[in-house]
Design a protein around this nucleic acid. Structure first.
Lengths: 149, 149
DNA sequence: AGATTTATTTGGGCTTATACCAAAAAATTC
DNA sequence: GAATTTTTTGGTATAAGCCCAAATAAATCT
């Protein structure tokens, strides 16, 4: 499943913290336990449980209580976008004199508020770069959407 | 008074909404009344009063109850930075295929989370442009700080 | 298996940011 | 100086975070 199937989201649906959760879960892959997330995001396990429930209610995760979570199809597509957004924006900032680390950290603070449309425009304007400063960039959505214009 | 005198701020001190208030007040100039702000930001006057008090407590404004507010020296320097940040970031986005309006709107959503350091780096990397997409850009701070490196 | 330990969830409470409404108070206008 | 408008105060609300303590489920150990 990839982003193509979800042309409807704007990229502004999730709060900054929820973005962290989804990115973390995608990067861990498969089923993720509450404790892994708690220590990964440095947050109390009870906070994690609650956030996981919210993400599950919103359709991004399947949560089996006491067992762990995994991404739904929507969640997977969405998380792929989140990672791509992070990488595109970080790469962009490195073109203005920031180091990779600086760029990543800075972007982490504001990425949740950058729309999918704008990410796609930047992405295409940069020629759909394959490598960001913190990993490979995949372009399933944005390339697909470009065809329609 | 200009930004030079305040090398200490990071640009992350204020919430998005407070950024709006300070930018609005700087653009109005001089003493600004509660009602002007309320209608400018489309918010209940009581909300404005409360926010104004918070900004005054934090040292950005002088508030004379029932009379209005004006920027302190810190507030003026800070607001100048806020405007410069908005314009630099908007200009940046127009280099990636966004229209002026799109760029302004997009930037409004995330600008509060972009640090002064990064704005200065972008600014100097762009050659300290004099004109943004929504007004002239003044460079008192960033040019000053550049001298120290 | 049964007991202990570990992991997870529930329930409660706290903070920050933002907002509105109704009533009181001050300033302005007539 | 009385009426009107503006501003403030006090109360309440929502959303997003977060933590703690207690309860519950799962896993481990003997």
């Amino acid at each position: 499943m990839n982003e193509q199937s979800y042309p409807e989201f704007t990229g502004l649906e999730l709060s900054p913290r929820k973005v962290d959760y989804l990115k973390f879960i995608l990067e861990k892959g498969d089923t993720v336990k509450t404790t892994e997330i708690s220590s990964g995001l440095q947050v109390d396990p009870s906070t994690t449980t609650k956030t996981l429930n919210e993400l599950a209610s919103a359709g991004y995760l399947n949560h089996v209580p006491y067992r762990g979570v995994n991404l739904t199809e929507l969640g997977e597509a969405y998380a792929q976008f989140l990672i791509r957004r992070h990488r595109i924006l970080s790469l962009l900032l490195t073109h203005y004199g920031l180091s990779s680390d600086e760029a990543c950290n800075e972007v982490s603070r504001f990425e949740a508020f950058v729309s999918r449309d704008v990410v796609n425009k930047i992405c295409s304007s940069m020629g759909h770069p394959m490598f960001g400063v913190c990993g490979e960039i995949s372009h399933e959505i944005c390339l697909h959407e470009e065809k329609h214009h």
